[in-house]
């Protein structure tokens, strides 16, 4: 396993994509739920700025990832707008055998054109993060709800409070990644401890992204 293939699709469609991918040789996948966002002031005003998404992750070899990109473009029309987007991130599978093995050459070939910016902040601040990213030129984003690892408390019931977190996934062209990062970091005060974290992952290949025209409504757009 040399990479993970990600696909963001409308809710209910992830299973279909996964089954198709299995026909192409994928072994399995993990699905989680998220919310897509549209970058439109009007829609935001009337509250229409959200849609339900599913995010599918399939661990696969680089070669299979390329095949899967072809597959989603052909079978699920990712070449058209709003059908979903897909991207590959070079996660490497760790097993005990290769403990300590020094990883080799970088992504290989040309430098990737896109970056995946992931920000993790307290719930309720996810929207602010997206706004900051849009102001810096990002074009969409997917919101995922998660929880932080627990912190014990001393209320009447000794709860282990698991703070709710928003995870924001933004795919942006590589040259835009730095300004977006700066903007998010300054507007959400990420330089202060405990305010949240941000990290950038390299992206090998994308499908379904539309760079030039405005008004696209995909889950993650750039």
């Amino acid at each position: 396993m040399e990479a993970i293939f990600f696909a963001v699709v409308n809710r209910g469609k992830a299973n279909a994509v996964l089954h198709k991918a299995q026909e192409y040789g994928a072994r399995g996948g993990t699905i989680f739920l998220g919310e897509g966002t549209v970058h439109s002031r009007l829609l935001e005003q009337i509250g229409l700025d959200e849609s339900h998404k599913e995010i599918l992750m399939i661990p696969a070899s680089r070669q299979l990832c390329r095949k899967l990109h072809d597959m989603v473009c052909r079978e699920f029309m990712f070449t058209k707008r709003n059908r979903g987007i897909a991207f590959t991130i070079p996660f490497r599978r760790r097993t005990l055998q290769e403990s300590g093995v020094k990883p080799e050459s970088p992504a290989g070939g040309a430098a990737p054109a896109y970056s995946c910016i992931i920000t993790i902040v307290d719930k309720e601040r996810g929207k602010d993060c997206l706004k900051a990213a849009w102001a810096a030129g990002a074009r969409g984003g997917t919101l995922v709800h998660g929880r932080g690892a627990g912190v014990p408390t001393e209320f009447y019931y000794p709860l282990v409070i698991e703070p709710q977190k928003d995870i924001i996934i933004i795919i942006a062209p590589r040259e835009k990644a730095a300004p977006i990062k700066e903007r998010i970091a300054s507007e959400l005060e990420l330089e202060k401890p405990g305010k949240g974290i941000l990290f950038i992952l390299p992206v090998l290949q994308t499908s379904g992204l539309f760079e030039n025209e405005p008004g696209d409504q995909g889950g993650v757009a750039s």
Partner: peptide
């Protein structure tokens, strides 16, 4: 950070 999901 922990996210809930489902998978094969």
């Amino acid at each position: 950070t922990i996210i809930r999901g489902r998978g094969t």
